[in-house]
Design a protein around this nucleic acid. Structure first.
Length: 587
RNA sequence: GCCCCCAUAGUUCAAGGGACAGAACAGCGGUCUUCUAAACCGUCAAUCCAGGUUCGAAUCCUGGUGGGGGCGCCA
């Protein structure tokens, strides 16, 4: 937000360096001044001093950094827009003339509105594939992280200026589907699903696995159905169409409940032929080895690449019976994506456990000569476990169903709304409860490093006391409440000529950092940066709220603070939007 | 056997090689007659171990320890 000032300062520092034969660094790293309670930007000269030391000069790095900092400070003298400049322990700290900068931050936020925090369009298209639910299996809490992370990453990329294509890739074929249909035909023929389709589908799937585990001799019977499937048996296909739709109906309920959407669906079943074609080509080209009927069709990646140590190992491209499996489809899908769109990046939000698989697919495509392979990116995330490091598995039926969590979350939130704010309308209470429970469910998934395992337990998932999403939502509601009481905020820009309260400055400082945090989150694919800045901004607002009266103060202070409150609310709403967490008007 | 991830306060998580390792929850103690106390203020409390690189390491490297995961026909 202070690009112009920074560039100007860097220009001065460069010329000072040039005059004094100090090596000029590639770039200057600017950070907010910490600890001071004042608002400003800071850079350090350790790297420069270290470079001098390496080039043979006899210097003590910290001392030399301090000397440089002092030299720059003296050279800069007084700078327009900065109240004072100091050189401390190798750091150069420049403190803003708060009034002027505060005015600019507030004006910018209010002018940009919902666009605040969003970068200019980059003219680049990225595709994000996420969710990838398997039909005929239940959606459970384990799937939640993928959906919530994927949706938020899309929003972040969009905010950073990319055109984003949200893509779903349901696993509507495969062994799990055959198993399900086999059990259905054998034990539930003709049954219609009850109201709760997803649960019923999941139960039948778990039952199929139980049967096959208990009576291994049934495997052949199940494989016989697989053969009918592969032979395009019309009865099997019809059953598949029908049962698949039941699954999709269930998924859509969950997507609606979570405010998740997609621009496009790629169906695994549509990739069967294309995938098999590619494998055929690979066999002809000598990239794949056909070991059928004894074995499968494999791509010996390490061998092809001449690697001595195991790295990519062997990818199975086709089953021994000639049917497709996940590698077959993924090869076809990657190609199709680039046939249909001109993509700067194709991102896969996929469980970290599939890292090797995706590396194999990407490397195979490279060997096939496709030029887009450097634009493929696997965004891995860790799973959600149950307490005691127990993995959720739909095979065994040991899962917490998504709908149970959503329902229970809403119910508990609704009770608390009744208790905290009994005077609200019933429909408003419902909206608040929905917003609060969605926030409580989503925030923990978004506020941690992607590669850290999350543990789900009912207790903390539905404990609204002090939960961070709620804290952010509440701060934003309080801001709204002030604005409502005051009847809005003044239109015209206001320059605060009074001395700003430290809590005001901290709040403005944090708001001013939001745009760069969004860019950073997009570069690193980390929702964590957004939750951090959102929480910090909310905390700064809460402190401001309790230390700085807004309405009953003199006119100029009131005018500026009202505009500050409005921009704080706008900032928090925008961040919540990016995270996919609702921002209610009242709570 | 090869490879990947994780280890920070009692607990859940932060920390862009840089200034004093920050929050939240839990604990303890305070604050509603003034814009919503779902809040604010105070307090206790932490970098798994051993080496190394660096002016400087929670962060990078090596080796341990502990936990999790992947490795030819599940996805």
């Amino acid at each position: 937000m202070f690009e112009k000032e920074r560039l100007e300062l860097e220009k001065h520092i460069r010329s000072y360096f040039a005059e004094n034969e100090i090596p000029i660094p590639e770039e200057f790293l600017w950070v907010p001044v910490p600890f001071s309670g004042e608002w400003g930007i800071s850079t350090s000269f350790f790297a420069t001093a270290a470079q001098e030391a390496r080039s043979g000069k006899k210097v003590n790095v910290p001392q030399r950094a301090q000397v440089i900092a002092e030299g720059v400070r003296d050279y800069l003298g007084s700078q327009e827009g900065f109240s004072h400049i100091e050189a401390v322990r190798g750091y150069l700290n420049l403190f803003f003339s708060s009034g002027q900068y505060s005015q600019r931050v507030v004006d910018t936020v209010l002018k940009e509105g919902l666009r605040f925090g969003h970068a200019a369009p980059r003219g680049e298209k990225v595709m994000v594939e996420y969710s990838q639910p398997n039909t005929h299996k239940p959606l459970h809490v384990g799937h939640l992280r993928n959906m919530i992370l994927g949706a938020a990453i899309c929003n972040i990329l969009e905010a950073a200026g990319y055109e984003v294509l949200r893509v779903n890739y349901p696993g509507d074929t495969g062994l799990h589907v055959i198993k399900w249909m086999w059990n259905y035909l054998r034990n539930h023929a003709g049954e219609q699903p009850p109201e709760d389709k997803i649960r019923w589908l999941g139960d039948l799937y778990a039952e199929a696995n139980r049967l096959l585990d208990e009576q291994p001799e049934l495997e052949a019977d199940m494989r016989a159905l697989f053969a009918r499937w592969e032979a395009d048996d019309p009865e099997v296909k019809a059953l598949w169409q029908q049962t698949r739709q039941w699954s999709i109906d269930g998924f859509n309920i969950a997507y609606d409940a979570l405010d998740i959407r997609f621009d496009k669906y790629y169906w695994q079943s549509d990739l069967d032929e294309a995938g098999k074609d590619i494998v055929r080509r690979m066999i002809e080209a000598g990239l794949a080895v056909d070991e059928r009927p004894e074995g499968s069709v494999v791509v010996r990646l390490d061998e092809l690449l001449g690697l001595e140590k195991e790295k990519y190992r062997v990818m199975v491209a086709l089953r021994s019976d000639g049917s497709a499996l996940y590698a077959t489809w993924d090869l076809a899908l990657a190609i199709r994506k680039f046939e249909e769109y001109d993509l700067a990046k194709s991102i896969y939000v996929v469980d970290v456990r599939q890292s090797l698989h995706l590396q194999q697919v990407f490397k195979t495509l490279e060997l096939l000569g496709y030029d887009f392979t450097d634009r493929l990116y696997h965004l891995p995330y860790e799973i959600v476990n149950l307490p005691g490091n127990v993995t959720m598995a739909s095979r065994e039926g040991t899962v917490v169903l998504l709908e149970d969590l959503l329902r229970e979350g809403f119910t508990r939130a609704r009770d608390i709304v009744d208790e905290k704010n009994p005077d609200l309308d019933e429909t408003v209470k419902d909206d608040v409860a929905r917003a609060v429970s969605l926030g409580a469910i989503k925030y923990p998934m978004l506020s941690r490093e992607n590669t850290r395992i999350a543990t789900f337990d009912w207790e903390s998932a539905l404990d609204f006391n002090g939960q961070a999403a709620l804290y952010i939502q509440y701060a934003q509601v309080r801001a709204n409440s002030i604005l409502r009481k005051a009847g809005g905020f003044p239109d015209g820009s206001v320059h605060p000529s009074y001395e700003l309260h430290p809590k005001e400055i901290e709040l403005i400082d944090l708001i001013s950092r939001i745009p760069s945090e969004v860019v950073r989150a997009a570069e690193e694919f980390k929702t964590l940066h957004i939750t951090n800045i959102a929480f910090d901004t909310a905390r700064a607002f809460s402190e401001f709220y309790s230390h700085c009266p807004v309405i009953n103060v003199d006119e100029e202070m009131r005018a500026f603070r009202l505009r500050l409150v409005a921009s704080a609310r706008q900032a928090l709403v925008n961040l919540l939007n990016i995270l996919g967490i609702p921002a209610p008007d009242v709570m």
